[in-house]
């Protein structure tokens, strides 16, 4: 369980560039949840998730992992292995001669055996769609998208109990994006790991997450199920966010065909509703 109690964070405290990035945030994430974290650019999402594994220390408030205040721990390494964090644009973290060795960096730091490390590296690589051949390449001669995959695999290989991803698919091609996200969703379903996904894509949140947390100007603006949050479209728009496009379309459609349901968030649901509306149209005409 991950719990934030009244957490605030101030960057460069005491200098003229002081910036309050988080204000009194309270969040509890239970084990096994799939949470989408959304918010306008600069709303404090990246800052927030760096508190989860102790990369940043809260200016005030507490961060608890499984009931333990991580501010009181001597070493944060175990926290880092428990809470796996894929940073925003993680490509720059690659440094080893081969992709294989780079993905193995985390598991080796955990002190795992060679066989276990090998298993995890290959598994993580397959999760992000890296081929066996790619594992022996130098990470520096790969394309941007492949680097991104390798960097994500580096965290997945640690098999963290809580996986936090900061816009992992920004800049990837659509099929690669879907592939990675659905593998993560699949892993979540299989292993029961907690997943916290930061994204700017309302579509991704709608089809993957069970719960949405909305940040606005450093404060927690909304926290609820996908249905609850996306039914407050007007408020979201004020924060520079939006509901998924299909929700807008079906809402417009409802004005003409009243039988179209409320709260349509995924393309699949929309497809069914629109088909139904069309059939009804046929009958009425």
């Amino acid at each position: 369980m991950l719990k934030l109690e009244d957490v605030s964070y101030v960057y460069q405290k005491g200098s003229p560039f002081e910036k309050e990035a988080l204000k009194n945030v309270n969040i509890t994430v239970e084990d096994g949840e799939f949470v989408g974290l959304i918010g306008h650019t600069g709303s404090g999402k990246s800052t927030l998730i760096q508190l989860f594994n102790g990369l940043l220390k809260p200016s005030s408030g507490r961060v608890l992992i499984d009931g333990v205040d991580i501010g009181t721990l001597k070493s944060l390494r175990d926290v880092r292995f428990k809470v796996g964090l894929v940073m925003q644009y993680p490509e720059y973290q690659l440094f080893e001669e081969t992709v294989y060795k780079d993905i193995a960096f985390g598991p080796r730091n955990m002190g795992l055996s060679e066989e276990e490390t090998d298993r995890r590296v290959r598994f993580a690589a397959s999760m992000v769609g890296l081929s066996e051949a790619a594992l022996d390449k130098s990470p520096f001669e790969m394309s941007g998208g492949q680097k991104r995959r390798a960097a994500i695999a580096g965290i997945l290989a640690m098999e963290p109990k809580i996986l936090v991803l900061d816009e992992p698919t920004a800049g990837l091609d659509p099929s690669g994006r879907d592939e990675i996200l659905f593998k993560i969703k699949d892993m979540h379903a299989r292993t029961g790991a907690t997943v916290i996904l930061v994204t700017h894509s309302m579509e991704d949140v709608a089809r993957l997450a069970e719960r949405i947390i909305v940040m606005n100007k450093g404060a927690l603006a909304m926290d609820g199920s996908v249905r609850e949050v996306f039914s407050r479209g007007a408020e979201l728009e004020k924060m520079g966010l939006a509901v998924p496009q299909v929700t807008k379309i079906t809402d417009n459609l409802r004005e003409r065909v009243p039988s179209v349901k409320r709260g349509i968030f995924t393309v699949r649901e929309a497809e069914r509703e629109i088909a139904a509306a069309l059939r009804e149209g046929e009958v009425n005409r």
């Binding site: 760096q50 594994n53 990369l55 944060l76 390494r77 880092r80 292995f81 796996g84 964090l85 940073m87 993680p90 720059y92 973290q93 960096f105 985390g106 730091n109 955990m110 580096g154 965290i155 640690m158």
Partner: peptide, 16 residues
């Protein structure tokens, strides 16, 4: 800034 980011990313992978 870059160094700070890299240190964070490697710490997240358990670098000591």
């Amino acid at each position: 800034e870059e160094t700070d980011k890299i240190i964070k990313a490697q710490s997240a992978r358990g670098a000591d």
